[in-house]
Design a protein around this nucleic acid. Structure first.
Lengths: 153, 153
DNA sequence: GGGGAAGTGAGACTGAGTATCATGACTATC
DNA sequence: GATAGTCATGATACTCAGTCTCACTTCCCC
């Protein structure tokens, strides 16, 4: 289920959760609207210099908690954020250009649930990230960074 | 395939890769031997105060590159390291006590390869972490921390 | 034993994120 | 419309994990 998200929807969602609609928040959300393929907190800080660093991070935390954006990490561990276009999804991350994609994998979910039974205890959540060299980068033959552990466990 | 790893094996592996066997490295590796369920860089820095911070981090990086340890993150993003006992595996992380476990999931691997084909581009690697409340914590009824997004995408 | 490469330690620095706190903006109530 | 209380903001200092630099030391081979 893919959902087209607009800034106004995000604002409405936040207001529903009891948060105020303030100018800095509106500006940050508008800025997010333009970013389809992942961004860093520093991107926002740089783009919106009149908004305090702390406010940017606070708003990111808010949006994370509201499930509007999600946090993931590049193959080297660098944090990235991305607008969540779907209810439940996972990410592909291009190791060369950093572009973030989404995918759905009901099968994987089911297998993980089975594994959870074997492991003992109860499953709280999971994190799946697929590191790829995206079609564009592969076409341009951009060399894949020789990260020490390309298979990240 | 589970492998019992001893400090001497690790050292030999490093030497094979052209790294010298030095006192700080031997001490760090010996210290790892005692840690079955994950550790942080700060744990090592604290345990080995006569070894420089930079050296600890340098050695961790070395061991990561050699595939002897692996890096993962708790549900809140805190970094953790763990001895890699098997060729290819994934981790379970207890969200309450932080204990790290391992599991194998050929099915998941296969599904991810299929997804890679759909996504376009070529797969470089993947990261799968299963967040659980481990058997011990579940038995003791320790409440699971209400992380904003328990399903980490 | 000597020389050169590899490794170390101290400490400054970076990048991501949090804490604090005085100030400013909203909102509900009168 | 004034007011009070709550929520949000910005500046700034701080933390935490990790990196960089550089002079010094250790290791290994000849």
């Amino acid at each position: 289920m893919t959902i087209e998200i607009r800034g106004s929807d995000i604002l409405a969602a936040l207001e529903n959760q009891g948060y105020r609609s303030t100018l800095p928040r509106r500006e940050i959300i508008e800025n997010l609207d333009k970013r389809s393929d992942g961004f860093t907190a520093e991107d926002l800080v740089r783009d919106l210099p009149h908004i305090g660093r702390a406010t940017v991070f606070r708003t990111i935390k808010l949006l994370l908690e509201a499930g509007i954006i999600c946090k993931l990490s590049l193959i080297n561990g660098e944090p990235r954020y991305s607008l969540a276009h779907a209810e439940h999804h996972h990410h592909t991350v291009c190791v060369t250009c950093g572009t973030i994609g989404e995918f759905h994998a009901g099968t994987v979910e089911r297998v993980l649930r089975l594994i959870g039974n074997e492991v003992g205890g109860s499953i709280i959540g999971h994190r799946i990230e697929l590191y790829i060299s995206c079609a564009d980068c592969a076409r341009q033959n951009i060399p894949v960074p020789t990260a020490g552990h390309t298979h990240v466990s």
